[in-house]
Design a binder for these strands. Structure first.
Lengths: 206, 206
DNA sequence: AAATTCATGATAAGAAATTGACAAGCACAT
DNA sequence: ATGTGCTTGTCAATTTCTTATCATGAATTT
């Protein structure tokens, strides 16, 4: 009776599929197939069909997939048929670049509040928002029912801030710090760790 | 006679091990063990031992690992016993934040040149460097023998710039654009895709 | 209307990664 | 010097992930 959960690794590929479908859509294409998707993504056609099969049959035998329909289904599966409000903690160089980045809003994630603890930064205007004192972090998260946070603070305070975020109701953290966050199992963390990525690639260089 | 290659997924964890070892080192610890490393990283002790075993025996039976020694070995394996010069292409919001980020230099990667194609940005001072015309991209890469590039340009020109980088001798690209780069097999790409990460996490929210 | 073509979705096979278990071997205590 | 305790490194077992195969069913052609 175990409801076979879809593997997380499969979920992680769905955003890639969605992005290619968005491209195809912008190119005016109405249909595609697993082979084409695979070529664009550098994955095998079999894998794409297998991944999609976890959620039901989206294609037509002999004809492939309708771009608009599959796109819509993926958006539904990933819960992207809404705009998710996001809090950004940290208004340093990185935080400011993130606040200005239009890609979040364009893809369903809207930064609705920015926090910092530096009096010099509090009150600063940033991408249409005002940097707020981190003291009000919990109040804003609770009031607006926000579930997603972007963490762009110094590594040494990352865990403490994360704890506060989680206590206030945050369930997903995009972690730009190199700290390994300890979180309860129902809180998701994704690390953005460019240094680790460079180090990974350096292995293959000489 | 096939020299069993170490799986890429293992290589990808080594930077995480290294970071924890750096922490332990800063804390003044001289020894550790697979269990402690596992706890700090959220991995099983068995996995850490297995990963390390790909490169030989670094520990002592009954006693664990010497922090300084294991750290040094990992740095050697990852080719981090040197400073890698890096070119940064794109001096927009993101590029500027990356240029200012001290973490690259602190971990063995030094941005030695920044390029853009916008006349407004060319000549700008940026973290001790001057933004150069992207026309000179190849010349600088070749002259300095650079193998690593950070790509922070608009998505629509990402592939074209990547092609130029590769032709000039770049072998590793840290790709901040959402484009899926097509590269020869001997060129490594690591994508930094925060939107995809948020979408991944959104699946688990309600 | 029947036959052919085509790409899916399901299943099976294969490959890869993780976990478990334990002999090996060093350090420390006796 | 011998014994005990502890953690590694390896091998085997298990689990997970990917790839290959093919019957199925829709669309198009004859």
């Amino acid at each position: 009776m175990s409801a076979k959960k879809t593997p997380d690794i499969v979920i992680g590929r769905l955003p890639l599929y969605l992005r290619v479908l968005n491209q195809l859509w912008e190119e005016g294409r109405t249909t595609t197939n697993s082979q084409e998707l695979g070529e664009r993504l550098g994955l095998s056609a079999a894998q794409i069909r297998k991944d999609l099969s976890h959620f039901g049959g989206f294609g037509k035998y002999g004809a492939g997939y309708e771009v608009a329909y599959l796109r819509e289904q993926l958006r539904r599966i990933l819960h992207l048929n809404r705009v998710w409000p996001v809090v950004l903690v940290g208004a340093g160089n990185l935080g400011r670049a993130l606040a200005d980045y239009p890609g979040f809003r364009e893809n369903g994630f809207e930064i609705v509040a920015v926090f910092d603890n530096d009096p010099q930064k509090i009150g600063l205007a940033l991408a249409g928002l005002t940097v707020q004192d981190v003291a009000w972090l919990e109040a804003v998260i609770i009031e607006k029912g926000i579930q997603i946070a972007i963490l762009a603070v110094p590594a040494r305070v990352a865990q403490a801030v994360a704890d506060r975020l989680i206590a206030a109701g945050i369930r997903a953290i995009l972690n730009y710090t190199p700290a390994r966050l300890k979180t309860p199992p129902d809180v998701r963390v994704q690390d953005i760790d460019p240094v680790a990525r460079l180090q990974h690639m350096a292995y293959y260089l000489e």
